[in-house]
Simulated assay, not measured.
Amino acid sequence: MNQQQKEKIIKMRRDGLSYSKISTALGISENTVKSFCRRNNLGSANKEFFFQRDGILCRQCRTPLIQTAGVKQKRFCSDKCRMAWWNDHPEAVNRKAIYAFTCPICGRDFESYGNKKRKYCSRACYGRSKAVRHE
């Protein structure tokens, strides 16, 4: 591998190209490209390949987001913003497993998320059901 190929590998890797695409473009073995990238901290574990896309902002605080090449696109700048946004927008949560019940103790209608075998609306009604059985 000559110096020109090394420079091309560095440029292509920074542009986000995979090892296989680089090896095909330069006519070098994929393993040679991988080992060169690892020796020069250009591997996939090294997250130094950042890029800025125009118009992509944090949903909560509206700061510009810096995306990492080859990784799922960010929507929030931090966990704090992510939690705040989801707490402010509960209607955006796609809840598919909501079940409707009537409590056998108090007769109140209630909903349960993710538990289709639930019987009581609260711990208090559950406690009353235990007291009724013992009498």
Rank of each mutant, 00 (worst) to 15 (best):
V132E: 14
F50S: 13
C106W: 01
K117W: 01
F51R: 09
Q5I: 11
R123M: 08
V93E: 13
P64A: 10
V71A: 08
F51T: 05
Y113Q: 15
Y19F: 02
R75D: 08
E7F: 02
R123K: 01
T24R: 13
S78M: 00
A131C: 03
Q5H: 12
T24Y: 03
R118W: 00
P90S: 07
G70D: 09
K96T: 13
A45N: 02
T24N: 13
A92P: 00
Q52R: 15
D15V: 05
R95D: 12
A100F: 12
K72Q: 14
A69T: 07
R13P: 07
R39K: 09
N31Q: 11
K21A: 13
L57Y: 13
Q52N: 15
A92I: 11
G27L: 02
K21G: 10
E135W: 04
A45M: 09
E7A: 04
E135A: 11
H89A: 02
S23R: 10
R39D: 05
H89L: 12
S122W: 05
C81T: 01
P90I: 07
N31C: 02
K74H: 07
I10V: 13
I56W: 05
I105A: 09
K21L: 08
S20Y: 09
K72Y: 10
A97W: 04
P90T: 07
N40E: 07
L17C: 06
R128D: 08
I22P: 08
R13A: 13
L57F: 09
C77T: 07
Y120R: 00
L26D: 06
S23V: 04
V132N: 12
Q67P: 11
K8S: 14
G43M: 05
R75K: 08
Q60M: 08
G107H: 05
Y113D: 14
Y99D: 00
P104N: 01
H134S: 15
D79R: 01
K8E: 15
